[in-house]
Each structure stands twice: as structure tokens, then as C-alpha cells.
């Protein structure tokens, strides 16, 4: 009896002290980690849109985040809410019912710069809704404009990888053709599934249109060597390929399926279905949102 008490107390003490240390470290590093994560995300968005690594953004280039919420309203039922930026730094919550019909617009207090602050925005959406309604954050996409003209979109997506979720970002041009894929967070096995971060894999998605993506498969054939040179910028430089030649090779292979990574078919498939789902869902949702905005005659910023 005495023994068991001793063991219990000892193990409890070990656990409590470990938990205290972890808690202290977590709270101490929370703020800087959050800041770094935000900065990293911004950099990924910039480089996906073609303005990474010191390349300056042109004038009048704007990226607007659009946050999506699932609203549970006891009276109106389940609604989808989009926080959209309006002209003159105003914002509004556009509510749409599950059938795709607009269900009212609520102006928000948030300014444009608050759209990136998720915690602040969550509380603002909550206060704008009726008292007993709840809103759950359900994802973000970004709309990029250049001098008032639509430049492209960056979408956030999640897919089930080999062990846990893979968070990624997909950029599209104005015609919804893929222009880039970036892996934001993943825990695939190093040396195997982790190769999804390599250029020769993720650049295979570049140039795929909405129709091509819908029929896209993963094949286990080896990657053609001319395609490999065209996909990896460093190899193209070494092989002395001119930009128009790279373009030509990529065009030749653009209808190809995705060539799976050696020894990592599951991770290759995961990213492929992730890109497919992210883009197809976005095209549907954005269409519905656009028609709602048109019907309600909103002066949106993008």
C-alpha cells in the first residue's frame, strides 16, 4: 500500500513538473512563434504570386484575405459567412445559406489590416452576429489585384498525408490555372514523403487548368529527364535551357499525370488530391460568393 502511494506520488510529481516546464516554455515562446509563422505565410504568398526573394511588388499590388466562417444560427440554421473587404477600408460579413442563396450582409467594425489578425477577427464576427449564434473559422483564401485588375488567387488547403495533415497553399491565376504549390507544414518522412517539398514534384502542378485537375491521376512512371530539367530552375540553368525552351517543354508535358515520388506514393497522392479538392472547392465557393456580392450590390475592394 505504501509502495503504491509512493509510486503514484512520484509519477504525479514528474508529470506535473514536466507540464509546468512545457507550459512556461509555451507561453514564453507563443508570441514570437506566432509572429514568425505570420511572416513565413506572408513570404510564401508573395513567392507564390511571383514576388518572393527580394523581387519587389509592383505599385498598386494588393492582396486581400477572405475568411470563411460556418455560422450556426438557431433561427436561420447553418449558414456560411465570408468576411470580405469593401472599398474605403470597410469590411462586411456576407452570409450565404447552404443552397447558395444570399442571406444578408452585416457590416463589420474591422479595418482592412485587421483581416490578417485571426483572433481579433473571430471576436468581431462573433459580436456582429445575433446573441446565440456561433461562428467557426473555416479557412482563408487570398485575392490579388494589380491596378484594379484581377491578378490571381492564393488558397490554403489541408490534406491527409502519410502520418498527419499536410498544410499547403495553391496559387491560381485569374483564369483558375495553377501557378504554384507550396507545402506550408508537413510531417512526412524525411528522405521519402518529405520530397513533396522539392521543385521537381510540386512544379508538376503548374499550368494545370481546372478541367485537367479534375481528371488528374498519380502514375508511377519515371519522370522524363527533359521535364525534370524544365521543372527545377537549378537544373535548367545547368542544362542551359532558355526560358522559352523551358516553357515549351513544360507545355509538352502539361497534360501529363503527376509522376509519383520514389517510395512515397501515398504522400504524392495526398498532395494531388489536396490540390484537386482545394481548387475545385474554391471555384465553387468563389462563384457562389461572387453571385451573392452581385445580387447585394456590394462595393468590394477587389
Amino acid at each position: 500500500m505504501k509502495e503504491i502511494l509512493k509510486i503514484t506520488v512520484s509519477l504525479t510529481c514528474v508529470c506535473i513538473s514536466a507540464a509546468l516546464i512545457l507550459g512556461a516554455v509555451y507561453t514564453q515562446t507563443f508570441e514570437p512563434r506566432q509572429r514568425i509563422e505570420k511572416k513565413e505565410k506572408q513570404e510564401i504568398i508573395n513567392s507564390l504570386l511571383g514576388f518572393g526573394h527580394g523581387k519587389e511588388r509592383p505599385k498598386d499590388f494588393e492582396v486581400y484575405p477572405v475568411n470563411r466562417y460556418v455560422i450556426e444560427d438557431p433561427e436561420a440554421g447553418t449558414l456560411i459567412g465570408y468576411v470580405v473587404p469593401l472599398k474605403e477600408s470597410q469590411t462586411a460579413l456576407v452570409r450565404i445559406d447552404l443552397a447558395g442563396k444570399p442571406a444578408g450582409v452585416i457590416p463589420l467594425k474591422a479595418k482592412h489590416e485587421d483581416l490578417l489578425d485571426k483572433l481579433l477577427l473571430n471576436s468581431m464576427v462573433k459580436t456582429a452576429l445575433p446573441k446565440n449564434a456561433t461562428a467557426t473559422f473555416a479557412g482563408t483564401f487570398y485575392v490579388a489585384d494589380i491596378q484594379g485588375k484581377r491578378y490571381g488567387y492564393v488558397l490554403e488547403g489541408t490534406t491527409q498525408g502519410f502520418k498527419t495533415f499536410i498544410n499547403m497553399m495553391v496559387s491560381l491565376d485569374a483564369k483558375l490555372t495553377v501557378t504554384g504549390v507550396a507545402i506550408v507544414k508537413s510531417e512526412e518522412d524525411p528522405g521519402l514523403g518529405d520530397e513533396i517539398k522539392q521543385d521537381f514534384f510540386k512544379n508538376q502542378f503548374v499550368g494545370k487548368t481546372l478541367e485537367m485537375l479534375a481528371a488528374l491521376k498519380v502514375v508511377k512512371d519515371p519522370l522524363p529527364s527533359d521535364y525534370l530539367d524544365a521543372l527545377v530552375p537549378a537544373r535548367a540553368k545547368k542544362a542551359g535551357l532558355a526560358p522559352d525552351k523551358i516553357e515549351e517543354i513544360r507545355k509538352k508535358h502539361v497534360k501529363d499525370d503527376i509522376y509519383a515520388l520514389t517510395g512515397a506514393t501515398i504522400s504524392s497522392r495526398a498532395v494531388t488530391t489536396g490540390v484537386q479538392n482545394t481548387v475545385s472547392k474554391f471555384s465553387k465557393r468563389f462563384g457562389i460568393l461572387n453571385s451573392a456580392i452581385e445580387r447585394k450590390n456590394l462595393q468590394i475592394a477587389f
Binding site: 514536466a18 516546464i21 512545457l22 516554455v25 509555451y26 515562446t29 514570437p32 512563434r33 514568425i36
Partner: peptide, 13 residues
């Protein structure tokens, strides 16, 4: 596990 978690949180900073 404690040390692994501590590294995982401190190193990015």
C-alpha cells in the same frame, strides 16, 4: 518528450 517539445518550441524563435 519534454526535451523534444522544448526544442520544438524554442528553436524556431
Amino acid at each position: 518528450a519534454l526535451w523534444v517539445s522544448v526544442i520544438d518550441m524554442v528553436l524556431p524563435v
